[in-house]
């Protein structure tokens, strides 16, 4: 039965991917991309990688869909011609060749088995019980620290797209909805639930799947729903409080990492304090990830008068 399930899931995943790149029309491609994100999240569940599935569900099926649909609409309003989203034969063959070769070699060459044993032995010293969190926030904290800053760099790149005279404007398009309408009702209903779910994912991340990234993404998503209904005012890129929110997570992470120097080594989390240190980092990181992702989706500042 497992084989049947796997076959159907893989077929769907491939179909969604091919339809997203092989068909005509940006809108259809985008919808297939959302469907693809859902199937990939399910594949991660099937593989037991719940942490990744959570991230994929929130990013792949959630935020990216919103971002791409907005882009499609913007292109249309700008009068851009509907260019064919048709991957050329050569890149398609090249991609298939690379994927095929990688798969073939990976199946043929015996695997070295990863680092499960080492991670299991070190887990009691890491301060948390979820091995994924131990890897992300302790064993390989330097990677995660850099990754959290990568998000910020991406936001800077998005903001760089604004024109000089637009820097005074709030980010994103001017969002509004009918007062008391369905959209506004939804925007009042979902965020409280989403905040509970997001906070739960962060809090639970120490012992079970979840964590700052997953929780932060959910918080960003429900925040965006509120923003889409015009319930929250969008910030300007030079807003001090928002910049503090963007910087807080990486800053706390950096300071905690540097404080390790006093405790015996860079990015060192002594076992007795590790849990407190990691949770502190995660709380601030969640805030920053949520703020950064939400601002990334909203885009650069835009003038309030539409052309």
């Amino acid at each position: 039965m497992t084989v049947l399930f796997d076959l159907v899931l893989c077929a769907l995943m491939l179909l969604a991917a091919l339809a997203a790149i092989g068909g005509r029309g940006l809108f259809r491609a985008t919808v297939f991309f959302v469907a693809y994100g859902i199937t990939v999240a399910l594949a991660w569940v099937r593989l037991g990688a719940i942490d990744v599935a959570l991230a994929e569900a929130a990013i792949g099926a959630g935020l990216t869909g919103l971002l791409l649909l907005g882009a499609v609409a913007r292109l249309r309003r700008a009068g851009a011609p509907e260019f064919p989203v048709r991957a050329g034969l050569v890149p398609a063959l090249a991609a298939a060749g690379v994927a095929g070769a990688t798969g073939w070699v990976a199946l043929r060459v015996p695997g070295a088995g990863g680092l499960w044993t080492e991670a299991g032995e070190a887990l009691p010293l890491s301060g948390v019980e979820n091995p994924v969190t131990a890897v992300l926030l302790n064993f390989r904290a330097w990677d995660t620290l850099l990754e959290s800053i990568v998000l910020l760099a991406a936001l800077l790149a998005v903001w760089a797209l604004a024109r000089e005279e637009e820097w005074e404007a709030p980010v994103g398009p001017p969002l509004h909805a009918r007062p008391g309408g369905v959209l506004e009702g939804m925007a009042r209903l979902l965020p409280p639930v989403g905040i509970v779910v997001g906070v739960f994912l962060v809090w639970a991340g120490a012992s079970q799947p979840g964590g700052a990234f997953q929780g932060g993404t959910v918080l960003a998503a429900v925040g965006l729903i509120a923003a889409l209904a015009g319930l929250v005012a969008l910030p300007r890129p030079d807003s001090g409080s928002w910049r503090t929110a963007l910087a807080a997570g990486p800053a706390v992470f950096l300071l905690v990492g540097a404080s390790g120097l006093a405790l015996g080594g860079l990015l060192l989390f002594p076992p007795d304090w590790a849990k407190a240190m990691i949770l502190t980092v995660e709380v601030f990181l969640t805030l920053s990830i949520a703020a950064t992702l939400a601002l990334l989706v909203l885009g650069p500042p835009q003038p309030r008068r539409m052309p």
């Binding site: 919808v31 959302v34 639930v193 779910v197 998503a221 889409l228």
Partner: peptide
């Protein structure tokens, strides 16, 4: 939770 997201 995010099912409605793309549709919105």
């Amino acid at each position: 939770l995010l099912a409605a997201f793309a549709a919105v």
